[in-house]
Amino acid sequence: MLQKKICMLGSFAVGKTSLVRRFVESIYSDVYQTTVGVKIDKKNVQVEDKEVSLVLWDIYGEDDYQKMRWTYLRGASGYLLVADGTRKATLEKAVSLEQKVREEVGVIPFVLVINKSDLIRDWELDSALESQLAAQGWNILRSSAKTGEGVEESFALLARKMLG
């Protein structure tokens, strides 16, 4: 079976671990538990006619306390860039992470997932920036690990991009 490595990148507390848990185990918890280190999960998916094993690297969110090790991206076929729609700074962080990935490992497929769409009333993201990124060719999806909205779609879109 085809195996593809996917890295989850983004600021801390944007919901990377929650997205993986929702995708792999269909579980969600409202309690924020920070990720220290790296957690790896697998899920088999059907992409068009092919069965693919996705190896999901849930990498801790970079901040002042933990710096990202770019060696984790070795062998990655793509990555899910995650931002929190209720925290504007996380989208800016996502933009800088994408640039850094390009510098470190070159251009590989990615999807920007703006998570926490269930908290639309607290939404803080500037649609102008979102539009600007879309205009640059970014694939952007909104998701909610809590409700499951957009989660399967995000991974499926990335898988298609990786195989395409």
């Binding site: 801390f12 220290v36 933990q66 700074a89």
Partner: peptide, 24 residues
């Protein structure tokens, strides 16, 4: 050692999130 580290980071990040919420 790991659980101590998790505890410390959890506290620090919760504080950061609280700070952001408070600022808003």
């Amino acid at each position: 050692q790991f659980h101590e580290q998790v505890k410390m980071l959890q506290t620090a990040r919760n504080a950061l999130l609280d700070h952001e919420r408070l600022a808003r």
